[in-house]
Design a protein around this nucleic acid. Sequence first.
DNA 1: TCGAATTTTCAATAATTACTGAAAAATAAT
DNA 2: ATTATTTTTCAGTAATTATTGAAAATTCGA
Lengths: 168, 168
Amino acid sequence: MKLSEARQQFISTWGAMGTHWGINRTMAQVHALLMISPDPLTQDDIMAQLNISRGNVNMNIRDLIDWGLVDRVLIQGERKEYFTAEKDIWKVARQIIKERKRRELDPMMKLMDQLSKVDGDKKDKEVKVFLDTISGIKKFGAHADSMLDVVVKSDENWFLSTALKLFK
Amino acid sequence: MKLSEARQQFISTWGAMGTHWGINRTMAQVHALLMISPDPLTQDDIMAQLNISRGNVNMNIRDLIDWGLVDRVLIQGERKEYFTAEKDIWKVARQIIKERKRRELDPMMKLMDQLSKVDGDKKDKEVKVFLDTISGIKKFGAHADSMLDVVVKSDENWFLSTALKLFK
DNA sequence: TCGAATTTTCAATAATTACTGAAAAATAAT
DNA sequence: ATTATTTTTCAGTAATTATTGAAAATTCGA
């Protein structure tokens, strides 16, 4: 398989995978392209390589920067902005975990706290099942939260060696 | 807060959360409704409670069954089918991990194996960066795969006690 | 300070995804 | 076997989400 073909396939699959994870296809493709590009790219490079408009590139790049997955790079004597992506997949994963925890898990747990204050008699089975569900989610969430904190703070080496031994 | 209001909020938030995870809003809402319903529901119950059409309920229920999150229940002397959802959130999480691993991680790893056979000289930096990215993903994927296998095979108690101690 | 280069915004539009509802198929009681 | 009930399918439509492209804003060199 030729490099150009393999690159295309990687970009396209990474994009499809994104849609299964609530990330839009193009954003995932831009990320994929930057991961396999040895040097930083400009908006025009990305437009050309993925065949998408300037506005689209701009918005998705900005989102990727918000996610902490892409950085602006200043190149000596160049007017244009260049962009580059973190290439260490372990760092990418940690960053995504950190952000999703902040954006999704934390607010979900706040809501569960509120919902657990619902009025009503625990002898009513509707109330009981509701409260049991909420409380189950709260407990699960608290543990997941601690685990993910440890993962986010740990380093690659921990993941590749220690964790596995412990799990086995 | 009244139960009816709390139930509505739970269903609506669980639905919104679904969209961040590549699951359609309605499917997540049906799941939420079944989780907080003490008794099994029929398609008509779900149609009424969520204000959606029969076809919509039918398709989403079928998907939930495919995911292993909802079961058909036969009720003595009743013609209609009833549905119920697993209420233990830990089992729900394990089931989701298991399915996503099968549907997403496994095929992704297969693709990485193919892509690592790309032709070209490793001295070419385009080739090198590409191969390094693929190989990073393969290594990461293999470890994630082992970890998730252990998680899927473990029980709630393991998660709530042992895992945390090991991580701390 | 001006003007060219570059980035950002956003209303209009396209593309995708989800939903409806009625018809067809399946099921099971009589 | 017939018929009433229930489930499934799917073409048409609606709703949502993503993309374009041109105008506005910003940046920076001269």
